[in-house]
Design a binder for these strands. Structure first.
Lengths: 79, 79
DNA sequence: TTATTTGCGGCCTTATAAGACCCCAAAATG
DNA sequence: CATTTTGGGGTCTTATAAGGCCGCAAATAA
C-alpha cells in the first residue's frame, strides 16, 4: 500500500530525477529512447505518481549516463 | 517482464544487501523488526528473487542505518 | 500563422511486488 | 540432548508497476 509518506518520498525522488534530466538537456522523449522506458511513464515517475522498481531505476541511470546511486543522492523530503 | 539480465542484476543487488546486513551483525528477523519488512521477504530480496520498489529500498536503508545510495554502491554484475 | 516538439494524463492488460503467515531444517545456544 | 534462533521456501490475496498506445494543450520553432 502506498502511504501519504511514500507519496512525498516519491515526489521528492521525481523532482530530483527531473533535475538530472534537465541538467543533461534531455526531453522526455529523448530520455525515453535512451533507456526504453515510455515517455509518459517517465513523466509519471517525475510527478511521483509511481513507485518504480530497482530495475527501472537502473534503466533511468543508463539514460542519464550516471551511477545508479546518484539518483538517490539528494536532500530527502521532510515528512 | 523480468529478463535473465534483470535476474543477474537483482542477484548482485541481493548479495550486496546481505553483506551490508551481515556487516551490521543483524539477523533477518532483527532487520525485519528494524524496517517492518517480513523476514522471508528480505531473504527473497537477498536471493535476488524479487525486484523491489523504491520505497522498499528506502526502508531497507533505514534498517541498515545507511544512506539509500549506499545500497547501490557496489561493483555491478557483468552481463 | 502553421508545424513541431514537449509534457503530460488516461486507459488497457499482464506481470509481479507487497504483505502476511506457515513451517521446516540446519545451526547455534543452553 | 533439548531449545531457541536463523535462513529461507511456499502460498494466498491484493495492490500496483510495467509496458504500450492515444491524444491533447501549451510551448517552441519555422
Amino acid at each position: 500500500m502506498i502511504t501519504p509518506a511514500d507519496k512525498k518520498i516519491l515526489k521528492r525522488f521525481g523532482e530530483n530525477l527531473r533535475k538530472l534530466r534537465k541538467d543533461k538537456g534531455l526531453s522526455l522523449r529523448e530520455m525515453s529512447y535512451a533507456c526504453s522506458i515510455d515517455n509518459s511513464k517517465i513523466a509519471k515517475i517525475e510527478k511521483g505518481m509511481i513507485n518504480i522498481t530497482l530495475t527501472t531505476l537502473l534503466q533511468l541511470a543508463v539514460a542519464l549516463e550516471a551511477q545508479p546511486a546518484t539518483l538517490l543522492e539528494y536532500e530527502p523530503a521532510e515528512l
